[in-house]
């Protein structure tokens, strides 16, 4: 049985219809990429799963239980982590505090943080600085680390490589690959190379609908299957 099932969800912002019946599923242990052009509803799909933008119709189930209608914090507590597109670091909290917010209350703080610091040693160096004072790359590492330490079964990751220098993209990519070993990931990514490296399967979203899906095995970024829907 799939860990996450999204069935025919319709989501609106005000009166504009963003998702027009999206269905997808993610199996336990899988990495699934969701690709498509800007503005087709990729981020909205993640927000709908989290119930931040609750769908007007359709269902989302996670590990057999219904998420639709729950509060976002309950969705998160059920074991879903989110690494949002614009990082959403708490500017006025220190690096360490940013991480502590994400730790489940039962976790020992020191243990929880050490996982993050092992992955990104740079964070430990800056642990007492305010999140807002970090560089863009450091903020992205912090956002990824915050998602990784949350003890989540499923990670929803939105554009982790956007606007980063190649060196940092590589480091973030390595961290995600390590995360993929132990958890399930639904990844939204413009960088097709990175997406195909990490993912087992993919879905292509176009103007609110899933238009293609399949296994990534043997596919390359310049495959015809992507050219129509993903601008280079």
């Amino acid at each position: 049985m799939s860990l996450l099932t999204v069935r025919d969800i319709h989501t609106y912002y005000g009166e504009s219809h963003i998702l027009e019946g999206v269905s997808l599923s993610v199996d336990r242990g899988e990495v699934v990429a969701l690709v498509g052009r800007n503005g087709v509803g990729k981020t909205t799909t993640l927000r709908s799963i989290l119930q931040l933008s609750p769908p007007r119709s359709g269902r989302v189930t996670f590990d057999g239980s219904e998420l639709t209608g729950l509060d976002t914090h309950a969705v998160a507590q059920a074991g879903i982590g989110w690494i949002p597109e614009d990082r959403r670091i708490f500017d006025q909290l220190t690096v360490a505090e940013n991480l502590r917010v994400a730790l489940p209350p039962s976790t020992e703080t020191a243990d929880g943080l050490s996982v993050a610091y092992e992955t990104f040693p740079a964070l430990q160096e800056h642990q007492d600085r305010d999140g807002g004072d970090l560089s863009g790359g450091q903020q992205q590492m912090l956002a990824v680390a915050r998602g990784l330490i949350g003890d989540n079964e499923l990670l929803l990751i939105d554009e982790p490589s956007e606007g980063l220098a190649p060196l940092i993209v590589e480091r973030v990519g390595r961290a995600l690959a390590r995360a993929a070993e132990s958890s399930t990931i639904l990844l939204v990514e413009q960088n097709l190379g990175l997406a195909l490296d990490l993912a087992d399967r993919f879905y292509v979203l176009d103007t609110g609908k899933i238009v293609d899906s399949g296994s990534t095995a043997g596919l390359s970024a310049d495959s015809d299957r992507f050219r129509r829907y993903v601008s280079a």
Binding site: T72, P84, R88, D91, V101, A102
Partner: peptide
């Protein structure tokens, strides 16, 4: 306190705090 941390996180970005499992309400 841990609760104080939640308060500060929630006042900066309530949506992100909720997505991290904090019952902001």
């Amino acid at each position: 306190t841990r609760y104080g941390l939640y308060v500060r996180a929630g006042s900066q970005d309530a949506e992100m705090a909720r997505a991290l499992g904090i019952n902001v309400r």
